[in-house]
Design a protein around this nucleic acid. Sequence first.
DNA 1: GAATGATCATCA
DNA 2: TGATGATCATTC
Length: 213
Amino acid sequence: MQRARCLAGRRLNELARELKVPVPARVNRAKGWTGTLLETALGATAASLPEPDFQAIGVELKTVPVHPDGRPRESTYVCTLPSPGGGPPLWQHSNVRRKLARVLFVPVVYETGAGFADRIIGTPIIWSPSAEEEAALRADWEELMDLACTGKVESITAHHGTHLQIRPKAANSKARQRGVGEDGAPAQTLPRGFYLRASFTASIFQRCYARAG
DNA sequence: GAATGATCATCA
DNA sequence: TGATGATCATTC
């Protein structure tokens, strides 16, 4: 948290220059660049592994694009929809619960159309779900997993779920992976992932900033 | 190809 | 403008 707080107020291109990380010429071709830059700046260790970013302390790092007024600009990716197999899915064993057990949110503030030079790191937040939040996430997860495991995965849209939603997470719309088909039998389906709605992260940010002043 | 990191492009 | 569905770069 000390290291993250030290980054608040910094511009992304300045931070990149200090870390000797090249700044992409086009923002729309560098979707993951900000997240990777913050991982480098904070010393995250589990890049490209299904583990918390900071393994030793069990913390997941999420950079969140926000409007100048502090509202998240986008939903937040959590993890992939698991492949089928191994009995009924249990919340206690889910990757969603593991990933969200402890999260360091780092807001990155900018106006529409801004380049990396005009994107500024905001005040970081360390968050764990309250009992109420976990119950709500669990309810969404169980509803979505029930659809996904009973042959209705193709009927799932981003409209399902109050705080947690399922959306495509793939190189393109033609990508396929092992999944459950219409009849409940194995089939090739579009890879999907769990995302936190922007309204959910907005409520987290609002509560944390209200408490901190 | 599958995982990580997310944001883009489109349309209501 | 905001949410959904689609997509991009990199690494292993």
